[in-house]
Design a binder for these strands. Sequence first.
DNA 1: AATTGTGAATCTCTTCACAGCA
DNA 2: TGCTGTGAAGAGATTCACAATT
Lengths: 234, 234
Amino acid sequence: MASMARTIKTPVPKAVAHRLPLYLRRLEQLDADGIQTVSSRALAESLSLNDAQVRKDLTYFGTFGRPGVGYPVRDLMDKLRGILGTDRTWQVALVGFGNLGHALVSYRGFRRKAFQIEAVFDSDRAKIGRRAGDLVVQDVADLIPQIRRLQIPLAILAVPADAAQNVANELVRAGIAGILNFAPVVLDIPDHVIVNNVDLTVCLEQLSFHVSKRKRDAKAAGPEVRDTLYFRAG
Amino acid sequence: MASMARTIKTPVPKAVAHRLPLYLRRLEQLDADGIQTVSSRALAESLSLNDAQVRKDLTYFGTFGRPGVGYPVRDLMDKLRGILGTDRTWQVALVGFGNLGHALVSYRGFRRKAFQIEAVFDSDRAKIGRRAGDLVVQDVADLIPQIRRLQIPLAILAVPADAAQNVANELVRAGIAGILNFAPVVLDIPDHVIVNNVDLTVCLEQLSFHVSKRKRDAKAAGPEVRDTLYFRAG
DNA sequence: AATTGTGAATCTCTTCACAGCA
DNA sequence: TGCTGTGAAGAGATTCACAATT
């Protein structure tokens, strides 16, 4: 019991989990620039966050900072890598070798972060057998045995919307632990599998919503305020 | 004053704005399936949300539902399109014609949602002049006059991290209203420009964090619980 | 003097629970 | 009866503000 309490103070808030990769990214930049210590204030400002928030987030995992000094960049970076799991290599299966899948195979950011695409699947006869980086595109029919054999924990789902749920079911049956889903559907997946959704059109719609809203608000507020906006924009 | 109050009840919560595209997506599916009416419960379940949340979200924009019946799919869909701005076509500039940029130009989801890539820029001599779909890749040096001339409101930033801030500054100077940023940096951008960040490695890191955590928790909780987990997974 | 770690206050978001309508 | 719209309660996240530490 006592040892569990130390492992993780309380369940880590979702919002905190979402910021950890940003902290790590920034710490890696600082480290590359040879900076050895950073204050919560400096870290917060570079990420457009509040300094108290940075401190509070970090205390979920221990106490790393020194009052009057700040946080040791290298140590904190290593610690965050351990927490995020990027101190090991993660094998990833990619399903769907269309435009997006193609781009993801060659995406260099993954390699740098220790995500290694180890298998590529598609259902299209024309694509099966084609080279995908160092790999060969396999038939999605072989997905379950292949993923089981290689013990691949993560999958990227880059198939059309109407195929996504079926493939997701297969991934679950194959024992996958996490899915990064690019298909524009909300997947129905058991709780023990983690899903992270990225819908590119949703991202653009959020932009167009905010931009439309700004325009409406500016119009409603009358010309004086609109002038001010344009003034700042120019 | 009275008319302003009706325009928007209160500033729309961020969380609501993020769910609107999901509602629209689901309504479009329902409409395509010929379904004319949907209850908040049904809508919520298909998106893994709470029904009260769906109702409350929608009331920010008016009252559309009929007690005992539900919401009219077609009407609500049209209304949401108006709110999200997808009832018009949005011109988009793409900056960065690498792997990702390449995939985005041919991404069919954008067309369906009325986002039209109207200009593509890169700084690489080898890429400038090449065809990108119906377009030709232009020199990023011409970005400002081109975006101003075509009055393009949205930009997709798919350039390497070290170039992103500079390009973003140019986009702001060109008068862009919103940026979808794929570069792994937090951009420093004036408030009147909307930024939406999508970092693919961050997405995978969030997965690896949760999966690592599950493993740690399972180990800490002892074998009985671990067995239960595996049991559910099988 | 600078900066952390954190209780308390505040703000935001979600869910409950139910009156009222079709 | 089934379902909406919403006030009130509850949960969660952010920010403040300050004692404690280097």
